[in-house]
Design a protein around this nucleic acid. Structure first.
Lengths: 183, 183
DNA sequence: GTCTATAGACCGATAGAC
DNA sequence: GTCTATCGGTCTATAGAC
């Protein structure tokens, strides 16, 4: 096993506290702009202490990204298995993006962080995979381009309209994406 | 005036050579991942020599971005003055993005670089400005969301389909963007 | 098992000699 | 205009205290 685990709910586990603080700082300032020194200071430990729990900064970043990666992989699995109608697929996609808004905002700020740890292995396949899932494995150039416009545009609306009412935004954005898809 | 200017076409001007090498390296590896040491080495000078020509790395980045910024500002000016039909506006937008593919790829890798020098002043206004130009100053939420899907999606197709035939890609991508715009 | 102390390598940036 | 030398900051690595 990895580390101590309290039987009560308290999170005294250092690793957990590091990930919590890191998540908050990364979302607020981006990955590159947040130093391990900053994270260590806020935890009242030395920078070197972080290196006991994480071999490299990249590993810490990878752990912060993990829940988002799991959620996206989950979305793929569901859509690949159940083949929902396009509207339903895009709506649940919108919700995944919405759920991880903070982390995705940090990624938008410096996408180089996606190469952290083994996160890159997953993310590298997403582009191709979303094409396959929405347009089929043998899609034409036109179908793939339309899918790109729909998916990329849809994802961006989440970060660009943070003050909009969520249900309304989802409806409008998904409608626009569906028209781009021409279905 | 700034520096020596040869009457013949030769570019022995050091400042120019720095910008050339920097442009190439930034496009290849991104802004953050390219060190001044790397650029200096390729020019056969020391890192400190670069600091005679550029006060900060950000200033060098800003100069690399400048042609793209000028071109985009030009596009805004043309569209704001002549109010072309949406298809024409999106087509010329596609071409601007296409023309600066390398620089925009570097930006996509770490957008934080957009805060370099006074570049940020321009870029910060582009989001709002493109809404105004394509949907009008008093656009509804729906119109602004549709514009976002169209513009963001359209721009991304350029970098995601580098091997596609340009005229075909532009036609397909602009069509998809127009459907998202619902015009 | 957990953390501190310390040091190395590289980064952007500056000061001053030539 | 370019150099050497150096500074403070970053990530990273290791030795060793407890």
């Amino acid at each position: 096993m990895d580390h101590e685990q309290r039987t009560d709910g308290r999170t005294t586990d250092m690793r957990e506290r590091i990930v919590d603080v890191a998540t908050e700082r990364f979302a607020a300032k981006g990955f590159a702009a947040t130093s391990l020194q900053d994270i260590a200071d806020r935890l009242g430990v030395t920078k070197a202490a972080l290196y006991y729990h994480f071999r490299r900064k990249d590993d810490l970043i990878a752990e912060v990204l993990a829940p988002m990666v799991v959620d996206v992989e989950d979305w793929f699995r569901r859509v690949e298995e159940r083949h929902p109608p396009p509207r339903e697929a895009l709506e649940s996609y919108f919700e995944v993006v919405q759920r991880h808004g903070a982390v995705l905002a940090a990624i938008a700020r410096d996408p180089a962080a996606l190469e952290a740890g083994d996160t890159a292995v997953h993310v590298a396949r997403w582009g191709q995979r979303v094409q396959t899932v929405l347009a089929g494995a043998d899609a034409t150039l036109e179908e793939r381009v339309c899918t790109t416009v729909a998916i990329v545009g849809l994802a961006r609306t989440v970060s660009l309209f943070p003050d909009a009412e969520v249900d309304e935004l989802r409806r409008i954005a998904v409608d626009a994406a569906l028209r781009a898809l021409r279905v």
